[in-house]
Simulated scan of single mutants.
Amino acid sequence: MRNLERLLTGLLLLATLPLIAQAETGRELHEENCINCHAEMEGGDGSGIYTRENRFIDDRDSLETQVQRCASNQDLQWFEDEVEAVADHLDEEYYDF
């Protein structure tokens, strides 16, 4: 029984590693490509763009659309998984959809 518990725990950990890696990738992409522009727009560290009262992101789909729009405006050639990684990071950090 104990071996089965260890095996299941190990499998669960392995299953979550890609999600952890994607969240880290999203955080890194965001820091490297988004923060400076947002800081210029909102001041401070730029996070106010996510926490302002009149934000227009109200669900996961609109978040991914906005991330793609920002990437395009910055001439970033992001793949879909990179857009999703940044959206995952923002969702976890600011939105909680």
Rank of each mutant, 00 (worst) to 15 (best):
Ala85Leu: 11
Leu14Cys: 02
Arg27Ala: 11
Glu64Thr: 12
Phe79Gln: 13
Leu17Pro: 00
Gly26Val: 12
Gln22Thr: 10
Asp75Phe: 06
Ile57Pro: 05
His38Asn: 09
Thr25Lys: 14
His38Phe: 03
Ala39His: 12
Glu40Asp: 05
Glu84Pro: 02
Phe97Thr: 08
Ser47Phe: 08
Asn33Ala: 02
Gly48Phe: 05
Asp58Val: 06
Glu42Asn: 08
Leu14Lys: 01
Arg52Cys: 15
Gln74Val: 05
Gly46Glu: 10
Ala23Met: 15
Leu76His: 03
Arg52Phe: 15
Gly43Ala: 02
Thr51Ala: 01
Ile57Asn: 05
Val83Thr: 14
Ala23Tyr: 11
Gly43Asp: 10
Gly46Trp: 01
Glu32Phe: 09
Phe97His: 09
Glu42Thr: 03
Glu80Gly: 04
Glu64Tyr: 11
Leu11Phe: 03
Glu93Ile: 01
Phe79Val: 05
Asp75Lys: 06
Arg27Gly: 02
Gly43Lys: 11
Asp91Asn: 13
Phe56Asp: 11
Ser62Phe: 09
Gln77Lys: 08
Cys70Leu: 08
Gly26Trp: 15
Arg55Ala: 15
Arg27Pro: 04
Leu4Cys: 01
Tyr50Thr: 07
Leu17Met: 04
Gln22Trp: 03
Glu42Trp: 06
Met41Ser: 04
Leu4Pro: 02
Asn3His: 01
Ala21Tyr: 13
Glu40Gly: 03
Leu63Val: 14
Gln66Asp: 10
Asp81Gln: 08
Leu11Ser: 02
Glu32Leu: 11
Asn54Tyr: 15
Ser62Gly: 10
Asp88Ser: 09
Ala87Cys: 02
Glu28Thr: 13
Ala39Asn: 11
Ile57Leu: 09
Gly46Asp: 10
Ile35Leu: 15
Pro18Lys: 02
Asp75Val: 01
Leu4Tyr: 10
Glu64Asp: 09
Arg52Pro: 11
Glu31Arg: 11
His89Ile: 03
Cys34Phe: 15
Gly44Arg: 06
Leu14Thr: 01
Thr51Gly: 09
Gln74Ile: 07
Leu8Gln: 13
Thr16Trp: 01
Ile49Cys: 12
Glu42Phe: 11
Ala23Ser: 14
Ala21Pro: 06
Arg69Ser: 13
Glu32Gly: 08
Leu14Gln: 09
Glu28Gly: 12
